[in-house]
Nucleic acid binder design. Structure first.
Lengths: 182, 182
DNA sequence: TCATAGCGTTTAATATCTTAGACAAGAACG
DNA sequence: CGTTCTTGTCTAAGATATTAAACGCTATGA
């Protein structure tokens, strides 16, 4: 069928967190038009569709290139995270199935005494994160430091690094790295 | 008044070698509408623009992604070929600067008056080649040109095209096909 | 020279889009 | 409980897109 412009526009608008009236105001059209377009009650002229998209903003090329089937999931429940780790170190991956992902976001959980291994890790890219609970010993390059809740890290992954839980309780970290390693 | 829909459509139509009436017939609209759109006298509705593009055929995404400034070079003079071979085997590379090329070259021979058929060819992929001997008339899109020894061609096979030997001797060309067989 | 056929353009009538404004439903608040 | 936001929807009137048919032009050929 003829390109579901309505669904595309609604998807775009809501993903930007805009109401019909707010988008209409930015685009210089009426809210009623947005409504009619989204219901496919009318097929907008290219010029008015462009005006609408200018309010987002988004180009016509991007609009028609959108793949609705791969509507980016923005929120993930605990059960929707993919478990990648082992008994000692739990790695819960966010947005695992998202194609073309440029980030690896992990919810890491280290058992008492657990570490990322005897060997130092080293790979391309950068990574960073924040400690949520417990205490983690982080070695980066030649430097070692123990981080507690609220403290954070960010370094080039090419530097040899290792994580180790030196506290008396489970340690949790939220981390991100690029390019995606998982 | 950005996004020159009229110029885009005219570029697309002529590159496919279609008249306004022929495109209108294929698309199921009137020739007058094509004319008005190409002059930017009206801004077509998305639905009618899609109908028009269906007659080419081309998707809305491709249409709005078109880069009018970078029209791919379709013809190459002798001086525009890049010499890659040695004394034993001479390799004159066609469209050397074209990125993402995916071709393998073949050898064809046309008898006097021979052609690839009355119908225009159109298929996926790309093709190119060099005339070795004789003269060949090549139609690509809306353009026709007679090529002689040393001259060459390279175009997207989606553009309607036809070869015809208009000389008085056998014509040899080195042609290419896609996807690459070697 | 006239006739025919093709081309892109233009115009008047019609179909469709777009606006302005009103409507009903839901949420926040006193 | 109302009041006052907001949300998306709907409708009649106005603006614009689209059609059908004609125009002027160029080329071809009898």
């Amino acid at each position: 069928m003829s390109i579901d412009v309505g669904a595309r526009l609604r998807s775009v608008r809501t993903s930007f967190g805009l109401s019909q009236r707010e988008l209409a105001r930015r685009a210089g059209v009426t809210n009623g038009l947005i409504s009619l377009i989204e219901q496919n009650r009318v097929s907008p002229s290219v010029s008015s569709l462009k005006k609408v998209l200018d309010g987002v903003p988004m180009s016509l090329a991007e609009f028609f290139t959108l793949d609705l089937s791969t509507a980016p999931q923005a929120f993930f429940g605990t059960a929707e995270l993919v478990e990648l780790g082992n008994e000692e170190v739990s790695l819960r991956l966010v947005a695992a199935k998202r194609p073309g992902r440029q980030l690896t976001v992990l919810h890491e959980r280290y058992a008492v005494g657990a570490a990322t291994g005897e060997e130092m890790l080293a790979h391309r890219g950068e990574e960073g994160g924040v400690v949520v609970r417990g205490r983690i010993e982080l070695m980066v390059g030649g430097t070692t430091r123990v981080l507690g809740p609220g403290e954070a890290f960010y370094f080039s992954s090419q530097l040899p690094h290792r994580f180790r839980n030196v506290g008396r309780e489970v340690c949790e970290i939220i981390s991100a790295s690029t390019p995606p390693t998982f």
